[in-house]
């Protein structure tokens, strides 16, 4: 699987916020690193198709050869993890995962198996608000993966976790993505995240960040 940003630029007024021309192969992690307010989120918005009005985009986003540029978010098949886990508070843990799982047989079993795979056996009926931070992060990751994405965008997903938890969660997310062969784009302002990712580190304007 391959995610390609082909001369992707985003301008706001006269200001160029994003200029990226890169190719991420399956299992690779590319990091966008810059201080906040410097176009990192804009780049993510352009890739998932949620740019607000007033931003001008040019160039293309290609995933496994499909041109995503004009597709609505829901058809892009790009998984997204935010800084906050954003588990839907009105659904149970299982309900959140069911929301993501494409329709098919054995849903309960598949949800239970997914939970078991991250050490959350029997968590399906739980209220997400009663979970610990680490547990919530794992459920959010599962929810993202159960929708069977073909690429992963990570928007500072570890920055709300404390140090010990951050290392564990980070390796879980990276391992899963590598095992599934997903191209990953990580947005962060944390150098440790970038080190752990091990891939190229760029600014939103496409320059080497270090």
């Amino acid at each position: 699987m391959t995610l390609v940003l082909e001369n992707l630029t985003v301008d706001h007024g006269d200001r160029r916020l994003v200029s990226l021309d890169l190719r991420i192969e399956g299992g690779e992690i590319t990091t966008l690193m810059a201080p906040s307010g410097s176009g990192k989120s804009t780049a993510l918005n352009a890739i998932i198709g949620t740019l607000p009005q007033g931003f001008a985009r040019s160039g293309r986003v290609l995933l496994n050869g499909r041109d995503l540029t004009r597709l609505p978010t829901r058809l892009r098949r790009i998984g997204l993890l935010f800084q906050d886990d954003l588990l839907f508070p009105h659904l149970s843990v299982g309900g959140n995962l069911g929301f993501a799982l494409p329709s098919g047989p054995d849903r309960t079993k598949r949800i239970a198996a997914a939970l078991a795979s991250v050490g959350l056996d029997g968590y399906a009926p739980r209220d997400p608000a009663t979970l610990s931070g680490g547990e919530r992060a794992r459920v959010a990751l599962l929810r993202c993966l159960l929708a069977e994405p073909e690429a992963l965008l990570l928007d500072e997903p570890f920055s709300r976790l404390d140090a010990a938890l951050r290392d564990r969660t980070r390796s879980l997310v990276f391992d899963r993505a590598r095992n599934l062969g997903l191209p990953v784009l990580l947005v962060t302002h944390d150098a440790q995240d970038a080190d752990a990712a091990g891939g190229p580190v760029l600014t939103p304007l496409g320059l080497p960040a270090r």
Partner: peptide, 28 residues
């Protein structure tokens, strides 16, 4: 929070599904 809807769309939900399954229950 608009990111709920974005998350749901990234999971493949249609606008109708976002409304009936997310927004309406969240705003009950």
């Amino acid at each position: 929070d608009p990111r709920y809807a974005t998350t749901a769309r990234a999971l493949g939900a249609t606008e109708a599904r976002v409304f009936w399954r997310l927004r309406l229950p969240l705003l009950l």
